[in-house]
Structure formats: structure tokens, C-alpha cells
Design a protein around this nucleic acid. Structure first.
Length: 692
DNA sequence: TCCGGGATAAACAGTT
DNA sequence: AAACTGTTTATCCCGG
């Protein structure tokens, strides 16, 4: 009956429109999700007016002002965040609405507070609330700004019209044309800004949410990977306005005398940021649609490889011309050269584009320098004081490497991985529109099998993650980033007597995860399959049936520890993992290296300690207390009597679990539900291990 | 490329 | 007989 009530719940929560049904449908396609790794939305503040031409075209000025507005908004958000923070209250459990920002955040300078950091620092509920605020604020700011600009323009136009009433019609027409062009410019800027925000994960791509001037933009048609098209004169049919804007821009460059200075700059700076990977690696304008979606290449600059191959041309690749804005197909190099000489000869337009490209490179270099600097600072910090987990562990964001699995999650993300900014698909649960950092896109999409599981690989603390994001998983139709095995184990360990019937396991799944309230056939089969498959799950016969228990030893044996401390950590860092992964790696590394901080409850604040601790021995692939080598004592299937720290088989197993489960009722599960059992876990289980 | 782990699907047998 | 439970096999995908 739990199932029924659960499904009721899901009905009430209008979960993803498309999420449903994709389940059995091997919705695997969602392989990607690196998106979660929203590019390091930083540096942009500084790079703003850096166009060092000395002179500033109107559009540049506009852009600069925009940047300023953005920065103001950012700072404002930061103030909001710090204002919301309640120092001293580090409870790992917060209601989804109460946003709490660690003190460390408040102490960061605005420039330092990147979205990634926010994601990394905040728990999903926090992020959710904060990002909603951010989104609203950003939009508000931008709208106000654009409104103002438009008003100014209108005013300007009016005064011009009034002043020059006797003006010949033609002149007026020209003015109007100029005005329209300016409007177009503004719209383009708006759009690009939206993209920026979107890319930063601050704004989700929900057309409905844009209001005012923003609504006029076909924003939904654009994704960051399409940005190179901003260069182009031709656009996809689905982007009419953008299309017109672009063509306008190109025409301008071709015709109007002031065109180059007028049209080019705004086209440059914004895309800039879009071509910068989270780790500061520029992908330059050669990045193509098909490459970006999944995850950012770990290290190698994507475009340089074929550019340097002998016999080819830096501007020629994938059979097409890579001149900015030109994707003319050329069968061979010769044809390309021909094309290059004819289409991109030395003329005003080409030189203008070249100048633009120079600026692009300049900006990218600046950005790269900044990111490198930051990376070094981070590494220096981590190396010098590796035992200072505060900035990472304080909010205890599980973040099982969103990006690394996703893809970003994600997610993730992750990221938020993959379209982090996906239009609300299955995560539509209004309560929790954002996915927890650990979720890759793979896990986001309903059917998306959690091919990218985080829990095990990156040793994410399932118990702490669950404790923290309990509400999230309960309400959001999001696939939890854990393996079935770890979930089953968690379910079993959460019960007082560490045993569950199959049906109780089912119920736990449906109770804890909205995702499992549908597609029962699929995951139930998987649960059974996992129970049977993994030796760590022991079936214990009972008078009235059978219950399942966990053989911790076997569970730990499942995956030999891979994380070997800082080298791996550093490697991960270098390879451009997101903060999430870094966080997980960092925690794991700390745990592995037996840092007392993470292993002694006293060293952590109560909130995070209770939830983090279990992990270290629990879900961290590297058992903090390596299970002794007496593996012989755990045969594949232990009969109840010989099972060491065995559970007493309960007398009345298969009853409705609500009866005996001290845990939370379905409606309002006690957040700490997973906490106490884990403590018990440590207290009871470990001695047992030592004894055996 | 291979291999291992995980997810999914499905077939099958035993039990309720 | 149907549903549930448990086991097993096959296949696919992904990451190392």
C-alpha cells in the first residue's frame, strides 16, 4: 500500500511531463551532462570593458554597462546570500526553503563566488532557493537595465524627432533604422546575457520565466553550443530573431561605415565566456555542436589537434571553413584555399573579423590567466592545509562529481550536468526544480538509467547525501545517483534490526525517492536482481518468510579502494573535474588518509559530522577501517548462525514496515532518519568486525 | 581493445 | 491461476 500512497504523491506533484514513460525506454541517450560543469562563471566581471581600443562604441558601452549591472546583481545576490546565512547553524538538515549559506561564503569576495562554488557549497535545497532568488534578481536587474536603456533610446529618438521635425522623411527613416538597429543590438545583448546567465546556471531556460523585454527573445532556441553561430550570418530556422540580428550585424559590417566598430564588439565579448570551459580552457570558436554536449575534454585543447596536422590549414577542419561565421564546406584543402582567398580576402570585413578574433583571443587569455591563477591558489591551499576541509565539507554537499559522471551532473552538472539548464523535464517537481549537485543529466531524465552513478565511484556518502537531500529526492522525480546496491544497503541499514523484506525494500525506495514511484517493474526487477547478484546481500530465512541483510564485509569488498590520497586528488583537479567531484575526491582522500578530522566525530560540527562520518567507512570506496583479511569468514552466502555481526532474524518480518519502523512517516520523514542508524552502524558494527 | 561494474530486460522456477 | 519472490543469463553502456 505504500506504493499506492506513493504514487498518489507523485500524482499530486506534477512531475516531469516527459519523464514518464521514458523509463523502460532505455532512455539512455542522456549520456552527457557535463553541462553541469557550467563554465566558471567568473572573470567575466573583469573582462568586461577590457576592449582596449581606447574608444568605446555605443555597443561596447552598452555591454560594459550590462556587465556592470550583472556585477551589481551578483553582489546583490551575494549580500542576499550572506544575509540569509545564519552563522553557527550548520545543521545538515534544512528545509528546502530556508537558505543557509556558510560563513565562508559570506567572507568570499564577490568575484570569488562563482556559481560552481555556490553549487559546491550549498546543498540542493539551499541551491534551489538561492538560485531561484538569483534568477529572479538577475532577471529583474536585467529587465530594469534594459528597460532603462530602451527608455533612453526612445527618449533620444523622440527628442530627435521633435527637434528635427522638418527633417526630410529620409533622414527620419535613417534615424529610425539606426534606432532599430540599436534595438536589435540590445536584444542581442540581452540574449547573450541570458545565455551567460544560463550558462552560469543562474537562469534556467524557461521561456515563461522571462518577462518584459526578455520575452521577445527566442532564447529557448539557443544553446551555448550554438553560440558560434552568433558569428554566422545564417542561422538555424528556429531562431528567427537571432537570425535577423545576425544578418543585420553582418550586413552592417559590410555596408555601414561605422559598422565594424558598431556591430562587432557586442558579438565578441559575450560569446567569449561561452567558449571558456569551466577550468578556464578556451575552446575557441571552433568548438562544434557535437562535441560540447557531453563533457568537456579533460585537458587537450579540442581544436588544436587537427589544426596542427601537417597538410592542413588552421582554418580548415572537418571539411569546412572555420573562419568565424563561415562554415562553408570544402571538399579538400585546395578548394578551401580557393574559398579562403575569394571569400575571406583582405577586405574591410575580413580585417574587422580578424580584429574581433584578436579581441576574442585576448579575452580568452585574460580568462585563462585568471583561471590558472585561481587553480594554483586552490592547489596551493589544498596542499598546504589539506586537513582544513572547512570550505568543502562544511555545507557537506555530497556532489558526487556531477560533471565527472555526467555529466553533470551534473550534474550534473553537475551539475549540474547536461542541460543543467534543461528545460524542466522530469525534474519538474515544482518543489525542487533544481537537481542536487551530484546529479548528472543522466540521472535527471527520468528514464535515464543511472549509468553514471556517483555514489560508489566517487565515494559519495550516500547516507549523508540522503540525509541532506532527503526532501529533494523525495519530491523531485530525479533518479538518485546511487547504485541499486548502495540504495538497498542503505535501506537495510536504516532499519533498527538491519533487515528488510523485499517488500519493505520496495517501500523504502518508493518512500525515499519520487523517482521510484513509477516504473515499478523496472526498478523492482533491478532490486531483486541486485539482491541476488551481490554477495553482500544475504537472505535470511524466517518463519514467515525471508528478510535481506547486508554483509558489510562483502559490501566493502565489492570495490577495492582506488583513491590513493592526494595524487589522485591532484590528478582529478588537474583534469578539470568540477568542484563536486573535487569535493568528493577531497573528502574521500581525507577519509582515506585517515585524517582525524573526518574520522572523529568531535572534530566536525554536529550537523555534518553525523552525516559525513558514516560515509567514511560506509560508502567511501576505501574503507577507513579496512576489513581484515579474513575474507574467508564471509562465504558467498552465509547462513544466519555463522554470520558474524549478524542480525537477529526478526520474528515477524513481512509486516507493513511503518508499524515497526521508528523512522519518519511517509508524509514527513524525519531528516535525521539516516543519521542515527548510521551512528549505530558505527557503534555496533565495528566492534563486531573486530571480534570476528 | 579489453575488462569489470552497473543497469536493464527477460526467462524461469519456487512460493504464497 | 496469478502474483510474488528469487535466480540466472544476456545485453548494453561506461569508465579505467
Amino acid at each position: 500500500m505504500m506504493v499506492e500512497s506513493a504514487s498518489e504523491t507523485i500524482r499530486s506533484a506534477p512531475s516531469g511531463q516527459n519523464g514518464v514513460g521514458s523509463l523502460s525506454g532505455q532512455a539512455d541517450g542522456s549520456s552527457g551532462g557535463a553541462t553541469g560543469t557550467t563554465a566558471s562563471g567568473t572573470g567575466r566581471e573583469v573582462t568586461t570593458g577590457a576592449d582596449s581600443n581606447g574608444e568605446m562604441s555605443p555597443a561596447e558601452l552598452l555591454h560594459f554597462q550590462q556587465q556592470q549591472a550583472l556585477q551589481v546583481a551578483r553582489q546583490f545576490l551575494l549580500q542576499q546570500a550572506s544575509g540569509l546565512s545564519s552563522p553557527g547553524n550548520n545543521d545538515s538538515k534544512q528545509s528546502a526553503s530556508a537558505v543557509q549559506v556558510p560563513v565562508s561564503v559570506a567572507m568570499m569576495s564577490p568575484q570569488m563566488l562563482t556559481p560552481q562554488q555556490m553549487q559546491q557549497i550549498l546543498s540542493p535545497p539551499q541551491l534551489q532557493a538561492l538560485l531561484q532568488q538569483q534568477q529572479a534578481l538577475m532577471l529583474q536587474q536585467l529587465q530594469e537595465y534594459y528597460k532603462k536603456q530602451q527608455e533612453q533610446l526612445h527618449l533620444q529618438l523622440l527628442t530627435q524627432q521633435q527637434a528635427g521635425k522638418p527633417q526630410p522623411k529620409e533622414a527620419l527613416g535613417n534615424k529610425q533604422l539606426a534606432f532599430q538597429q540599436q534595438l536589435l543590438q540590445m536584444q542581442q545583448l540581452q540574449q547573450q546575457h541570458l545565455l551567460n546567465l544560463q550558462r552560469q546556471g543562474l537562469v534556467s531556460l524557461q521561456p515563461n520565466q522571462a518577462s518584459g523585454p526578455l520575452q521577445t527573445l527566442p532564447q529557448a532556441a539557443v544553446c551555448p553550443t550554438d553560440l558560434p553561430q552568433l558569428w554566422k550570418g545564417e542561422g538555424a530556422p528556429g531562431q528567427p530573431a537571432e537570425d535577423s540580428v545576425k544578418q543585420e550585424g553582418l550586413d552592417l559590417t559590410g555596408t555601414a561605415a561605422t559598422a565594424t566598430s558598431f556591430a562587432a564588439p557586442p558579438k565578441v565579448s559575450p560569446p567569449l565566456s561561452h567558449h571558456t570551459l569551466p577550468n578556464g580552457q578556451p575552446t575557441v570558436l571552433t568548438s562544434r555542436r557535437d562535441r560540447v554536449p557531453d563533457r568537456p575534454p579533460p585537458c587537450c585543447p579540442p581544436s588544436s589537434s587537427h589544426e596542427e596536422t601537417p597538410g592542413s590549414h588552421p582554418l580548415y577542419g572537418h571539411g569546412e571553413c572555420k573562419w568565424p561565421g563561415c562554415e562553408t564546406l570544402c571538399e579538400d584543402l585546395g578548394q578551401f584555399i580557393k574559398h579562403l582567398n575569394t571569400e575571406h580576402a583582405l577586405d574591410d570585413r575580413s580585417t574587422a573579423q580578424c580584429r574581433v578574433q584578436m579581441q576574442v583571443v585576448q579575452q580568452l587569455e585574460i580568462q585563462l590567466a585568471k583561471e590558472s591563477e585561481r587553480l594554483q591558489a586552490m592547489m596551493a591551499h589544498l596542499h598546504m592545509r589539506p586537513s582544513e576541509p572547512k570550505p568543502f565539507s562544511q555545507p557537506l554537499n555530497p556532489v558526487p562529481g556531477s560533471s565527472s559522471f555526467s555529466k553533470v551532473t551534473v550534474s550534473a552538472a553537475d551539475s549540474f550536468p547536461d542541460g543543467l539548464v534543461h528545460p524542466p523535464t522530469s525534474a519538474a517537481a515544482p518543489v525542487t526544480p533544481l537537481r542536487p549537485p551530484g546529479l548528472g543529466s543522466a540521472s535527471l531524465h527520468g528514464g535515464g538509467p543511472a549509468r553514471r552513478r556517483s555514489s560508489d565511484k566517487f565515494c559519495s556518502p550516500i547516507s549523508s547525501e540522503l540525509a541532506q537531500n532527503h526532501e529533494f529526492y523525495k519530491n523531485a522525480d530525479v533518479r538518485p545517483p546511487f547504485t541499486y546496491a548502495s540504495l538497498i544497503r542503505q535501506a537495510i541499514l536504516e532499519t533498527p534490526d538491519r533487515q528488510l523484506t523485499l517488500n519493505e525494500i520496495y517501500n523504502w525506495f518508493t518512500r525515499m525517492f519520487a523517482y521510484f514511484r513509477r516504473n515499478t517493474a523496472t526498478w523492482k526487477n533491478a532490486v531483486r536482481h541486485n539482491l541476488s547478484l551481490h554477495k553482500c546481500f544475504v537472505r535470511v530465512e524466517n518463519v514467515k518468510g525471508a528478510v535481506w541483510t547486508v554483509d558489510e564485509r562483502e559490501y566493502q569488498k565489492r570495490r577495492p579502494p582506488k583513491m590513493t590520497g592526494s595524487p589522485t586528488l591532484v590528478k582529478n583537479m588537474i583534469s578539470g573535474l568540477s568542484y563536486g567531484a573535487l569535493n568528493a575526491s577531497y573528502q574521500a582522500a581525507l577519509a582515506e588518509s585517515s585524517f582525524p578530522l573526518l574520522n572523529s566525530p568531535g572534530m566536525l560540527n554536529p550537523g555534518s559530522a553525523s552525516s559525513l562520518l558514516p560515509l567514511s567507512h560506509d560508502d567511501v570506496g576505501a574503507p577507513v577501517e579496512p576489513l581484515p583479511s579474513n575474507g574467508s569468514s564471509s562465504p558467498p552466502r552465509l547462513s544466519p548462525p555463522q554470520y558474524s555481526h549478524q542480525v537477529q532474524v526478526k520474528e515477524e518480518p513481512a509486516e507493513a514496515e511503518e508499524d515497526r519502523q521508528p523512522g519518519p512517516p511517509l508524509g514527513a520523514p524525519n531528516p535525521s532518519a539516516s543519521g542515527p542508524p548510521e551512528d549505530r552502524d558505527l557503534e555496533e558494527e565495528l566492534p563486531g568486525e573486530e571480534l570476528s
